[in-house]
Amino acid sequence: MPPLFTVCAANAGVTALLGVGTTRLYPSGDAPEDVAKPYATYQVLNGVPENYLGEPPDTDEWNIQIDIYATSVNSANDVQNALRRALENVCHVTRLGRTGTEPSTKLRTTSLDISWYHPT
């Protein structure tokens, strides 16, 4: 797995919005209940080894979805932009999600997908 959290937690633009020390970026959709807003979660959509003839893979391609939750559309978009700026130096952003409202919490949401080639 690529160092998604490490890269994001080291970026001043991300930590300005998601917090320093305890950066509110959680794996597998596991954000704590009553967490401060905004926050983001990420999940692996799939991983694919770079297969070669005659030797084992030395790189995997990871496709990861990041979901953002905020109290306003502007806040959700600000987090999306900060994450994008932090990650575009190390991977490819492959999808920018639409803004919506999460039905049960009424939080504003958006998302992005990334494709990250990472050595095994």
Rank of each mutant, 00 (worst) to 15 (best):
A40P: 03
W62L: 04
H92R: 15
E102G: 03
S28K: 07
L83S: 15
P103Y: 05
L107V: 01
S75K: 08
L45Q: 14
P38K: 08
A40F: 04
R95D: 08
N74T: 12
T71N: 09
R84V: 01
W62G: 07
Q65T: 06
I114P: 03
P2L: 06
T105F: 01
Q43E: 09
L107G: 06
N63Y: 14
S72D: 03
Y39S: 03
G47R: 15
I68S: 09
P103H: 11
N51L: 14
T109W: 10
G54S: 14
T23V: 11
A76I: 00
Q80M: 03
P103N: 04
K37V: 11
D67P: 04
N46P: 01
L96A: 13
L107H: 11
L83M: 10
I68R: 04
S28A: 15
G100C: 06
P38V: 12
I68K: 01
G100T: 14
L53Y: 14
E33Q: 12
L18T: 01
P32D: 07
E55F: 06
V35N: 10
E61M: 11
N74V: 10
Q80G: 00
L4I: 06
K106F: 02
S104I: 10
N51A: 15
P49M: 13
D78W: 00
V35R: 05
T6H: 09
Y26P: 01
A86E: 08
G13P: 05
A86L: 12
P103R: 09
G21A: 13
L4Q: 00
C8T: 04
R84Y: 12
L17D: 00
G54Y: 03
P3L: 09
V35Y: 01
V7K: 04
T101W: 03
C91R: 08
G100I: 06
G21E: 09
G54P: 14
R108I: 01
N74C: 04
A16L: 07
